[in-house]
Design a binder for these strands. Sequence first.
RNA 1: GGCUCCGUAGUUCAAUGGAUAGAAUAAGCGUUUCCUAAACGUUUGAUAUGGGUUCGAUUCCCGUCGGAGCUACCA
Length: 597
Amino acid sequence: MNNINQILFPYVVQAVSKTFSVELTEQSIQFQDTRKEFEGDTTLVVFPITKFVKQGPEQLGNAIGDYLVQHCSVVKEYNVVKGFLNLVIEDTYWLDAFQTMLKVQHWGREEENSRPRIMVEYSSPNTNKPLHLGHLRNNFLGYSVAEILKAAGHKVTKVQIINDRGIHICKSMYAWQASGKNDTPESTGLKGDKLVGQYYVAFDQQYKAEIAELIQNGMTKEEAESNAPSMLAAQDMLRKWEDGDEAVTKLWKMMNQWVYAGFDVTYRNMGVDFDKLYFESETYLKGKEEVEKGLSKGVFFKKDDGSTWIDLTNEGLDEKAVLRKDGTAMYITQDIGTAILRFEDFPDTAAQIYTVGNEQEYHFKVLFKILSKLGWSQSDACHHLSYGMVELPEGKMKSREGTVVDADDLMDSMKDESKLMAEEQGKLDGLTTEEKDLTYHKIGMAALKYFLLRVDPKKNMMFNPQESIDFNGNTGPFIQYGYVRTQAILRKANWNKGGDMVLNGEVKMGGEERNLIKLLFAYPQFLSEAVKKYDPSVMAAFAYELTKAFNVFYQHCNILREENVDIKTFRLNLTSLTGQCIQSSMSLLGIQMPEKM
RNA sequence: GGCUCCGUAGUUCAAUGGAUAGAAUAAGCGUUUCCUAAACGUUUGAUAUGGGUUCGAUUCCCGUCGGAGCUACCA
């Protein structure tokens, strides 16, 4: 409910109480924004009230409207269409609201650190494969939700779990060693993650070939899969790694370094960062400990074969294994360890948000239940920020079929495209090469980030490499362009931010200005909805609506050419605040604004 | 088999149970002697299907059809 509706609420209650002697419940008073084809700023839906008052909707609407115009000073006039009471609010109300917004330091945002700490986990890629399109959605989402929570006043810690342990790492290590080539990122000129990824693929190919051969020699598929020499060698490596074998550990460290160095480049390009990293190689033992503790408390139980389980059948879930019969840790074991370690590292953490694909919804249900049974009450507030897949026209991305869209390549091509377009327009003449380059980057990333974030996170989305990313319409660059316009005007006016706002009552607002003020005033409502739903697309929609409203205003109202000084000042202030809010809301999506484009 | 999610213009996305289902793009037409036309205006075009609840259903419930995912001592 926005501010104006909060003001109106008691008057509506009064109106019904005084005219009909009926006390309304809170639920029966429903406001919504007035549709633009009708006159008004806000609309009371009358239907729910007809249940309490025996009157036709139109009659009732008129009665309430009359009362509001007489008793509530902000209501200027009203009209009733069917069961909808459209209320026109006085201009002075909006002008006052505008003044209030100008006085606030960062309009729309809450005071920093005024709300409890929330930990946001995102990214957490497999170290064997370079980052791809799906990771981009993950990273942009996680980063954006963290920024949104911050803007809403939360302390935020951005974390990532590095999956640097397990058989998959050993596969690449084995393949690298077996090739005997001693390739390094330096010797090949490849990014470290790309190089290691190649060896992971090489392993897979060799493994497949071995299986085929073994099957031909009479083995069943299952036998072949577990007896292929390369797999045996990788498993042997894993054992050695767990025993702390020096040579294996050294190789593991070296190859992990390569991957991280490669990822760092990609992260910098993406514009995301982390406050703290957790390494699976360091937390899985913690997980085992916590499971042992839970076992003695009776949270878990052992089966005859020695494996450890939890029974969640009473919670509507299944039994779930948490330790193998040989006592080794599983995926969920290390997640338990990591979660608890984080609660211990940051005792003021109210909740953890996990940005992980929706195929793991079951996993997180189980994890949160386990944490709760282990006595971590914060787990009730924990949230799996589940997002849908990014699909290609040919279906799912499959590395085997070469349909993986590489994150680095995609970001580069976005930048190239924005460069092409900018050069065609020639509006960046006069900037240095570095400035131009930065601008291309900002525009390309805006197109990509906005494309991935404007969609409801939980839904699968379609990405067509050839057609999807646009620079016109409902896109990042469109919004950037709106911002650039605001800045161009302010530059020409020699506008100092926070310059004196001299508004006298004579200022007559047009519909364009009014709409802009209404939207700006709604910023906090959009933000709180984005927080509630952990949904950046809410902010994307806000930035887009705001930019559209500004463009209409720009098209229809003179700003610099306005002769009346009061109106000109008013419009410059409006331009300034709009620019500020566009920048602010887009920064919540991790999108930066260029000064020119 | 069981469970979860999804199905909206040609296409990509919107819509706390509310008004004539919004945008963008594509296609057509128009706007620049004037603050950046990556803009603005305008025309055409959609709720998979059958029931139910409701004053009112894209939204909630049930069935059918279609798509995705989960249901590992994998991660």
